[in-house]
Design a protein around this nucleic acid. Structure first.
Lengths: 248, 248
DNA sequence: AACAGGGTTTCACCGTACGAAACACTAAGA
DNA sequence: TCTTAGTGTTTCGTACGGTGAAACCCTGTT
């Protein structure tokens, strides 16, 4: 479990860590599962779960008696999208782009040393990229990660220090960012995941800051050199349209 | 703010109450807004917000400096749907029903004395019902509420005690539940909201418990007596199909 | 019967969460 | 310019709330 930051409430952080145990694919968890996972005493977890349950963030399944996420999360999710003009404004264009090129479209934002997929429109093809909203991915690999970094206003020193793992060649890391920046897009061929490829381009705010990466992704065998050029052209055009949309 | 329950952690409940301040349409809130709304001291709210922010449940907007929901909510929402077989399994049938009759389709579950819309497929018509997922509504009014109550295994005494407000005629309340139960569906004509009408039917679990209400809703002028019969027939058939889907 | 593993309850204690107050900053009004 | 109002941030003493430990309860397995 993470160390407590200054000015925060330990009990609250612990409760939120419990919630985040469900951020993966675990549908339900028992009290002991959580206790072991977080290294907290059973009675502590019991109380924290009772608190989460009292506010509807956790519920117990009627037959298994194990804990699941509650409906309060749903109450909040509408607000996430309402308050985030970005993903709702650009959704129609993402859908259009998906229909145009037939691959899965995703929108990523940066959060510290990671990127989060905040919106996605999946391909309709039988074999497709599954794009779970809310998923966190490393920034240093993948087309979208490279775009978010390359167009970031942080210095290269900061980027290397914060986002480049020790087992990666720093010069190559930087070079890929420089390349991405001059090209205006980034490509990833099985860089993050075997069998998957992606092309990404940056979306800018009114002030010229990169605020998101728009990504086209799919099975690598569909990303032939010819198709790659088509995707690059399309994703860049759409990202430009979105940048303009967000300026109004 | 609600009283603290036994066996819960006050600090955690307070933090979750802060999160639930965003369950409405407030995109962003200031520290003082929250402090006033919940009756908590500013420094308390400050600490709780720092805790929520440390785990990504809250973020501060770069220009306004006010608080908004964070991306951690998105991380959890995928799991809500994955772990809730109900809404993902029945979504295709909801979409088909929407395409068949052209009105907004919603799925509600009961949570205490309220119902929550856990899934929705909106009409494509220019004038339509907007259906925010996660929305909480009272159980004692509206077609879906009546369905959830009428087919509940709770005794009528319990239902009246828990769900019937004091300013409502209890005999009429009970009578509407008895009617709903014998008909197998419920109708609401501007009962919950001016200009809106709905028809709802129950979805049952394998064990015969009502687990959700399937609702068709739209502008009341479109719910003529003829259309009403069409909607009743359609929603009941779909609810039956869904009940069978969930049995496998 | 014993054991394991799930969750629930009780209790002493101490350190964590709290409220109060001061502080810092900005904007608006006189 | 000064004052006031309002926002958020920091500091500090204290008491009570959160904690871990242990016992307990229940169910299932050997």
């Amino acid at each position: 479990m993470a160390e407590q930051e200054k000015g925060t409430v330990r009990a609250v952080e612990r409760a939120l860590d419990i919630l985040l145990c469900f951020a993966g694919s675990d549908a339900e968890l028992g009290l002991s599962d959580i206790s072991k996972r977080l290294g907290l005493h059973k009675s502590t977890v019991h109380r924290l779960l009772a608190s989460l349950e009292s506010k509807g963030f956790i519920r117990r399944h009627s037959s298994t008696e194990k804990y699941r996420l509650g409906w309060s999360i749903l109450e909040l999710v509408s607000n996430v999208y309402q308050s985030d003009a970005l993903s709702s404004i650009v959704l129609p264009e993402m859908t259009r782009l998906r229909d145009q090129i037939g691959e899965t479209i995703s929108l990523y934002v940066r959060s510290g040393t990671e990127r989060i997929r905040i919106q996605a429109v999946e391909s309709n093809q039988p074999v497709r990229r599954v794009a779970n909203i809310g998923m966190r991915l490393p920034l240093h690999v993948g087309a979208s990660g490279k775009v978010l970094l390359a167009f970031s206003k942080d210095s290269y020193e900061e980027l290397v220090r914060d986002c480049c793992p020790n087992d990666i060649n720093r010069m190559e890391f930087l070079q890929s960012l420089v390349t991405t920046r001059s090209q205006g897009y980034a490509i990833s061929i099985e860089e993050r995941e075997p069998g998957a490829a992606a092309v990404a381009a940056p979306i800018f705010s009114r002030q010229g800051d990169v605020i998101a990466a728009l990504s086209v992704s799919g099975p690598v065998d569909r990303f032939t050199p010819d198709m790659l050029n088509v995707h690059i052209e399309a994703v860049r055009r759409s990202a430009d349209i979105m940048t303009k949309m967000l300026a109004h």
